[in-house]
């Protein structure tokens, strides 16, 4: 457990360093994820202890959004003014994005399987 945490934290730090040093628009944790992926690809395996820690951490991913999510509390004023328009735009735009992405990928994958690749 502790070893897994140490590895994840080290890659988080490495990710923060890479994002900052190369002025990437990507946040540190995302760089860290890509670094750990590249590292695992280079070694052709994931350490079992890291895999275990990662799996248990990810099973609580939803919990980690609660502190930021409760911040909706303090947006009352702006929402009173523009809330309805914002809600409609957010809802429509999110569903359109979801559907277009899923349909495009579905179509591309079907073409690929059909062409026998």
């Amino acid at each position: 457990m502790l070893y897994g945490i140490a590895v994840l934290l080290s890659f988080l730090v490495a990710g923060e360093a890479v994002s900052a040093a190369l002025h990437l628009p990507m946040p540190g944790p995302v760089s860290g994820m890509l670094l750990l992926l590249l590292w695992s690809m280079a070694r052709r395996r994931v350490d079992e202890r890291v895999a275990k820690t990662a799996t248990s951490l990810l099973s609580y991913l939803g919990l980690f959004f609660l502190p930021a999510g409760a911040g909706l509390l303090v947006l009352g004023d702006v929402l009173q003014q523009h809330g309805l328009a914002l809600a409609v735009v957010v809802a429509l735009s999110t569903l359109i994005t979801l559907l277009v992405t899923a349909l495009v990928l579905h179509w591309l994958l079907r073409r690929r399987y059909r062409s026998g690749a």
Binding site: I5, L8, L9, F11, L12, G15, G28, P29, V30, G32, M33, L34, L35, L36, L37, S40, M41, V46, V50, A51, T53, A54, T55, L57, L58, Y60, L61, F64, F65
Partner: peptide
Amino acid sequence: LGPATVALAVPLY
């Protein structure tokens, strides 16, 4: 959230 994002590398791999 930070380490959990890094952890996503495991299912990806």
